[in-house]
Simulated scan of single mutants.
Amino acid sequence: MNGYVFGATDLVDEQREAMQRCLDPITFARLESLGVGQGWRCLDVGGGGGSVADRLGEKVGETGSVLVTDTAPDGLRSRGNVEVRQHDIVTDELPEGEFDLVHARLVLLHLPERRRALARMVRALKPGGWLLLGEFDCTWLRVLATTDPAAGVVFARFHRALCAVLEQAGADVEWGVHAYQAVQDLGLVEIGSHAGAQPWPGGGDGARWLEINSRQLEDRLLGTGLVTAGDLDGVRASLSDPAFVVSSYLTISTWGRRPLDDTPGRAAR
């Protein structure tokens, strides 16, 4: 995945597990609201640890199917009605007009070619099929509570450095906000969006996710000049303290439907 900065360390499995525990409830609730059910054919782009693909496999049953893709599908496994395929959404073609649902979570924000990838995902939908994106506005990451105001100042520096690293890699740190317009521009209908943030207390899954990120990107974070090694040590100590609470990134689900009268293969050219 071009631009993805978190994938090349021995902490990837722990990162995926923390992410899934934080985000799966949000994703699963949205899949339920879209009515995913028996017989659907689904595509999960950038499937990561596979929790969404597994849930889709349960929902669509024996008469449905799930194709889950990733550029490095080491965390995925084919089983039953779930097929794993190595695939780069930016460069590799997809079947067109095939899927009742195309889902991607925290994929497009990292890709400099995100709009090209999004258009490919839209073309893969059947007329009437649903697109569901789960993305962040990474600029939203606030300290909600701390017993040490200085720790909040250091955390804010860490957050600025983290956003800088992501932008240097080609990410759009506000992509969650921009996704609605991008989906609308591609001609989808019945577009909706839901945004929310959760408290992440120190020692919890969200705080652990951030702590892992600080280790995965340590050299890059220091390279921004915005934080020191001492700052990162302080952030990690804060993220292990239950009295230190941050708001999660603003998590934005965006969805839309390919028009029923659209012709497969012509959408989003």
Rank of each mutant, 00 (worst) to 15 (best):
D54G: 09
D88I: 08
D24F: 00
E17S: 12
Q86V: 01
A72W: 08
G35M: 05
F99C: 06
I26R: 04
M19I: 11
E93M: 02
L31A: 07
R30Y: 13
G50D: 11
E93S: 15
G64V: 08
P95F: 06
S65C: 04
T27Q: 04
L108V: 12
A72Y: 08
S33F: 00
L108N: 05
G57K: 01
L109F: 10
A72V: 15
S51G: 14
D44M: 10
S33K: 08
T71I: 14
D70F: 03
G57Y: 07
R85V: 06
S65P: 12
G97C: 05
V90D: 08
T27K: 05
S65F: 05
E98W: 10
C22F: 00
P73S: 07
L56A: 11
G46L: 02
D24T: 01
G35Q: 06
P112G: 07
N81Y: 01
L111I: 11
G61L: 02
D70V: 09
E93Q: 13
D74P: 02
V60P: 05
G48L: 05
I26L: 07
A29E: 10
V102H: 09
L94H: 11
A53P: 12
V45L: 03
H103Q: 13
V66E: 03
T27L: 01
V102P: 14
R77Y: 04
D24Q: 08
V68N: 14
L67H: 03
E113M: 13
R105M: 04
R41V: 13
L101K: 01
E32D: 15
V45S: 03
C42E: 03
A18R: 12
A29N: 06
G57T: 06
L23D: 12
T63F: 06
G48A: 08
D88W: 10
E93V: 03
E58W: 03
T69E: 01
G80L: 06
G64W: 01
D88F: 12
L56C: 10
E83V: 13
L56I: 10
L106T: 13
G50N: 09
V52A: 12
R79E: 09
M19D: 01
S33R: 14
G37F: 00
L106P: 01
R79W: 02
E93T: 14
H103G: 10
D54H: 02
K59A: 11
G48E: 12
P95M: 07
P95C: 06
P25G: 04
C22A: 09
P73A: 10
M19K: 00
P112Q: 09
Q86W: 01
C42L: 05
L67M: 12
G37H: 00
L67Y: 05
